[in-house]
Design a protein around this nucleic acid. Structure first.
Lengths: 204, 204
DNA sequence: TTCTAAAATTGAGTCAATTCTGTTTTTGTG
DNA sequence: CACAAAAACAGAATTGACTCAATTTTAGAA
């Protein structure tokens, strides 16, 4: 079952993603026509739709790879957090934000986010929701870790706090990608300011 | 300048919005074709595009009316807030959420939110951002009011707290409209649980 | 090797949003 | 009232995502 057919399949997947990533970057999401992606990937339009349900799912595959890297990078912070709550959150948030813009442009993020709310039941829509949950869970784990280290009060609801931190950060990130002129440094400063309230609430 | 032309213009605006609202409700956003909206409004397709830049802006006009009503309803709570922080926030959040679903279906919200991130510079995109800001400002005003009443510590950053509350609620609302089976009662309970942490932080 | 069923590919065709160009209506002026 | 410029309208043409029926390729059995 891992003969020619499977190899060709993997290869076509790769070619489509590579072609799409390049075109999304150069021409933007709307500017990248399926026909052009198909031509560049050396497959037909129909084949692309055999591999992905719609144009959004192609972008989705790219975004998912990126977010998985982000999750990976975040693990390090959870395993070895800075020795105070504010810095710990700031470090994790910093990793999420900086990493997120490594391969994906703001425009690609805008599209990805839009698609995930527009078509929540499409493959990418579901994947995106799962990724959000994974990020929330990672923040919850960090908080639990800090509780274990005695840096956060034991009676704090780590789940609820994790959700608050994630939801706030995510919303700030959405507003950030909506404005092309918005700067990362200002975004991070704003989130720090907001988190200060939460940090105060967790003081032992 | 307020002769026939202006009257016809207002009338056509109204007819287009009414036709669109009815069709969005009955057939869903995607299901409502511009051609059908045009026919029902007794104008041509071209005319619709003379009044609105794109299909999303038509939905945007409807959503904006709704959110303005929500803002209006919220004013009452700010003017006369319940006598403890948790209830005050819960009441305001309750008004936002319940009111938001009065005329607009989850599907319409999904589309509206998607469009506002996809096309942040379109008329509706900008209007939506402004409405979000107005809601945040209203929450900030409520918190400032509670500070005035001695129910919230004076050294709390009302702006940052308002943003936290709004961003968290908004993100929860987004997830809520993405799942057709999600219930309002559960959404409100989840937000209450999250806000409990913030309420604790504000205790005098 | 040959053959058949299953899987995959192809690209022309469909559908609906948006654009474009020529026509009609309104306005203000002489 | 007649008329020219400006504004608005109409609907045919364009565009690009997505579908589908016909064809080609692969797997594996005889």
């Amino acid at each position: 079952m891992s003969g020619l057919r499977a190899r060709q399949k993997a290869d076509r997947h790769r070619r489509i993603i590579e072609a799409a990533a390049e075109l999304f970057r150069d021409a933007g999401y709307e500017g990248a026509k399926i026909e052009t992606i198909a031509a560049q990937a050396e497959v037909s339009v129909g084949t692309i739709y055999n591999y992905y349900q719609n144009k959004g799912d192609i972008l989705g595959a790219i975004v998912s790879m990126e977010v998985n890297e982000v999750l990976n990078a975040g693990q390090g912070v959870v395993a070895n957090p800075p020795a105070n709550v504010g810095d710990a959150l700031d470090t994790l948030v910093g990793i999420y934000i900086e990493h997120s813009l490594h391969y994906l442009s703001k425009e690609m993020w805008r599209q990805a986010m839009a698609i995930s709310t527009q078509l929540p039941d499409s493959p990418f829509g579901q994947a995106y929701t799962a990724l959000d949950r994974a990020l929330t869970e990672q923040i919850r784990a960090l908080i639990a870790r800090l509780q274990g280290l005695g840096l956060v009060r034991r009676d704090i609801d780590a789940q609820a706090l994790g959700e608050l931190v994630f939801n706030n950060m995510n919303m700030m990130f959405i507003e950030f990608v909506k404005r092309d002129e918005a700067r990362v440094a200002e975004l991070r400063a704003a989130i720090r300011r907001q988190n200060r309230i939460l940090v105060a609430a967790t003081a032992v």
